[in-house]
Computed example of a mutant assay.
Amino acid sequence: MASTVDEAAAPAGRAARRRDRRKVEMIAAALQILSSSGYQGMRFEDVAERTDIAKATLYHYFPSKDALVSAALEKLTTDVMTRLGEALDAAADRSATDQLRTLVTEQLHVLTVLYPEVGKLFSFPAPWPDEHSEAIKTMRRRHDQIFRDVIDRGITAREFDCPDPSVALHCLHGILNHASIWLRPDADPDNRTRDAVVDAALRLFLRA
Rank of each mutant, 00 (worst) to 15 (best):
S37M: 07
E106C: 11
M139S: 12
A28T: 09
T78F: 04
R158E: 14
A72M: 07
R184V: 04
D52L: 03
K65L: 08
D46E: 12
Y59N: 12
D144I: 05
M139V: 04
V113F: 05
A187W: 04
K55G: 11
A9V: 00
C162Q: 01
L202R: 01
A196L: 02
R22Q: 14
L202Q: 00
P185I: 09
R22E: 06
K137R: 15
S64L: 08
A157H: 11
D79S: 10
H173I: 02
C162E: 01
A30S: 08
N177Y: 14
D79E: 10
C171G: 11
R141K: 14
T82F: 11
R21F: 02
M139T: 07
D195E: 15
D130N: 09
Q107A: 14
L176T: 07
L103V: 09
G41I: 06
A56L: 10
N177Q: 14
D164H: 15
H170I: 11
D46T: 08
M1G: 12
S64H: 04
L111C: 02
M1L: 12
G41W: 03
G154Y: 04
P11R: 06
V198D: 05
A30N: 01
G154Q: 04
F124H: 14
I53A: 06
R43I: 01
T102Y: 03
S3F: 03
R50N: 15
K23W: 02
K75W: 06
V104C: 05
G41H: 02
A48T: 07
H173E: 09
P165I: 04
G174E: 04
R192A: 13
T105W: 09
A48S: 13
P125W: 07
D93R: 14
D6V: 08
D130H: 04
R140G: 03
S95H: 05
P125Q: 05
D52E: 13
A12P: 00
A87M: 08
V47Q: 01
E45G: 05
A71W: 07
M42S: 03
G13R: 15
D186P: 00
L169D: 06
L88D: 10
A208S: 13
D79T: 11
D199Y: 04
F122G: 07
M81F: 09
D164C: 10
D195G: 01
D93T: 15
D161I: 00
A196I: 00
D195P: 01
T57F: 00
T78V: 15
F147T: 06
I33L: 15
T97Q: 13
F62N: 05
R192E: 13
D195T: 12
Q145A: 13
Y59A: 07
D199T: 10
S95Y: 07
A179E: 05
E74L: 06
D149T: 15
R21P: 03
F124T: 14
D195A: 10
Q145F: 05
G13V: 12
F124N: 11
R94G: 08
A8M: 11
R50M: 15
A91V: 10
R21E: 10
L103S: 10
Y61S: 14
D93G: 06
A196R: 09
Q40Y: 02
V104R: 01
N191R: 11
L103W: 08
L114S: 14
T112A: 08
G85Q: 10
A200R: 14
E106A: 13
S166C: 01
R148L: 14
G154H: 04
D130R: 13
D149E: 12
R184M: 07
A196Y: 00
